[in-house]
Design a binder for these strands. Sequence first.
DNA 1: GATGAATGAGCTTTCATTCAT
DNA 2: AATGAATGAAAGCTCATTCAT
Lengths: 196, 196, 196, 196
Amino acid sequence: MKLKNREKYTRIIQAAVYMFTNKGFYQTTVAEIAREAGVGKGTVYTYFENKEALFLAIIEEGLQQITIKVEENRDPEADPRLQLKQAIMATLNFFAEHRDFCIFLVREHFSYDQSIKEQAEKLYYQPNSPFREILFQGREKGIFEFEHLDTLTAGLTGAIFSSAFYWFIFSSHFPVSKIYSTLENLFFHNLLGNGD
Amino acid sequence: MKLKNREKYTRIIQAAVYMFTNKGFYQTTVAEIAREAGVGKGTVYTYFENKEALFLAIIEEGLQQITIKVEENRDPEADPRLQLKQAIMATLNFFAEHRDFCIFLVREHFSYDQSIKEQAEKLYYQPNSPFREILFQGREKGIFEFEHLDTLTAGLTGAIFSSAFYWFIFSSHFPVSKIYSTLENLFFHNLLGNGD
Amino acid sequence: MKLKNREKYTRIIQAAVYMFTNKGFYQTTVAEIAREAGVGKGTVYTYFENKEALFLAIIEEGLQQITIKVEENRDPEADPRLQLKQAIMATLNFFAEHRDFCIFLVREHFSYDQSIKEQAEKLYYQPNSPFREILFQGREKGIFEFEHLDTLTAGLTGAIFSSAFYWFIFSSHFPVSKIYSTLENLFFHNLLGNGD
Amino acid sequence: MKLKNREKYTRIIQAAVYMFTNKGFYQTTVAEIAREAGVGKGTVYTYFENKEALFLAIIEEGLQQITIKVEENRDPEADPRLQLKQAIMATLNFFAEHRDFCIFLVREHFSYDQSIKEQAEKLYYQPNSPFREILFQGREKGIFEFEHLDTLTAGLTGAIFSSAFYWFIFSSHFPVSKIYSTLENLFFHNLLGNGD
DNA sequence: GATGAATGAGCTTTCATTCAT
DNA sequence: AATGAATGAAAGCTCATTCAT
């Protein structure tokens, strides 16, 4: 299933994110997505194997974009603490610009579906995640202290997603700095070697 | 919806909690719930208007039980700080004993569904919630500082649910005290007048 | 999938035979079968796993009825030649009374479908076929001469079906005796030991 | 339907025969035929009005080829009995060389489809069929005896097709002479005036 | 009250056909 | 002339809900 027409592909993804976010996976029909994207029902199936594949494509697509954004905004030579801060901020800013996707992602995270559960791993144990890289670097340099790299990467990622989501839901305004400080409290304390 | 036969009613609720928790609302069929409960499919409709009503009944039922448990364990004459601690602990202990329901609740909390969104209010703005009562008392006595009672009640409830859920998912063990201290960190700091 | 209601089950089978015979498997919709049977669309699925299962049920059901009819009309103690004649006549008479089913059967026999091809074996290599029994008996008694029992059973069965079908298609009248004599010509000659 | 590009036209026909024979008309998609033929999906529609027209073209094309083969191999001045034998042998040899087409044809013959039923006439009542010509000649000369020319032409054609098919399906080897003798038995007996 | 056979609305998905390139 | 992306009609199937027993 190649990307025959990048523009239409994107429109379908966006329509699906919008619909899934607002109505949920099972309550959204493929017909609605197609209508929202301004394409024919069959066209969705030209770009995606089926409804579930579309769902998974959204996650992959989004995570990829986050990764790009994060990589653009970090200096791999800098102090890991700074890198981590930059990475978190970049992620939060991305969410600020893509509220739909952020909400979508967190919901997926708490989802029931078994087939979707497998994706949680893709999500949190991304081998090429910048977060993983940063944490690894920090430990190598003796700045961060922790045992399991993968678990921490997953925890950190999940915490960022959830926090952002929380703010979206419960605040009308979106003060990124406020979320950041909460996360800083939660993580740096432990990372810097004073945790249990 | 009278409780015609308390025992059957309970069996259906439990079966539904179990199924919804493990497969999700839309992936669970009424037939499955009936089978799990050991009753006929039609019987479910004798006790509940429809599938959604069953869903909502679960929430109401559970919250009621939590309220009972909390009320049993708090001393309305005690210091609001202590009352709050007792209430949180009672809630967490309830979840420890009813993991299924806890997970169910959090998922519902993050759910997409519009019709379910309305229930979030029933859930978080319960007029007779002990948490609301405690927070109100604490402010009256000048111990707690905050602006919107309802918002804070909702936030606190949500935080307890989410935290408990998080531990369920990411830890094999379940150390209630650990969750509590996290929550204490997050809330007391702000409640006691140093927050923004 | 038990036979909850024998009468409805039969009505669906008959409707399906009628429709499949006249429009073919792929051109017949489940909705049409349901309408023809005077039941709801979903009811078809109460009795049959899916469309294909309905198709196969028709074959099994029909073959079973033929077997019953044949067994009723043959004398297991009689000369195998006579038994064979009686069996063929009984089968032909059955077809005369169930033209739809006969045509259906032959078409299936010439069908393309792989999944249906497997059924051909069920059809022709029925281990408890009276034809097989008769041929076996005849050989034991030194009256019939042939090598492969299974192959001959299949060939005989197929020939009966095809011949009957041929007459249905090309004649408005249906002289059973005429078909029989053709079959007699084709088979007895060889069976009685003068063939190649 | 002009033959714009004879080579592509032939490739599509062959691909379609192959696919229809192995998967059946409804189970074969136009896309598959195009792929098999090595052309674009749209190209099929350049050469054939639609899927059904392609189907019918196969029959016409094939029958035409058979007619050519038969005409090449018969001597219009010879004894009608010999001509008939030659015509039958030529047809059988054609089938031996084009098994796919033979199977395709017989299946079509037993097909359900109404729209295809109309083609049975095209098939069996071909006004310019050599068989028809031979039978007519034979009757004129007082050698053959029968009533309805058209019916007999159809019957003879159908018998040839079916017999060939039968042998294909049930024998691994293909002894043309064997089929011929069967047909000779079936037809000459009646044709020569001893039938009922 | 309890049941499960019956039902049809509604969903996902396929695919013949069109048409802009 | 050749193509394949786009499309929507149509089909199989599921399942919440009803209702006769």
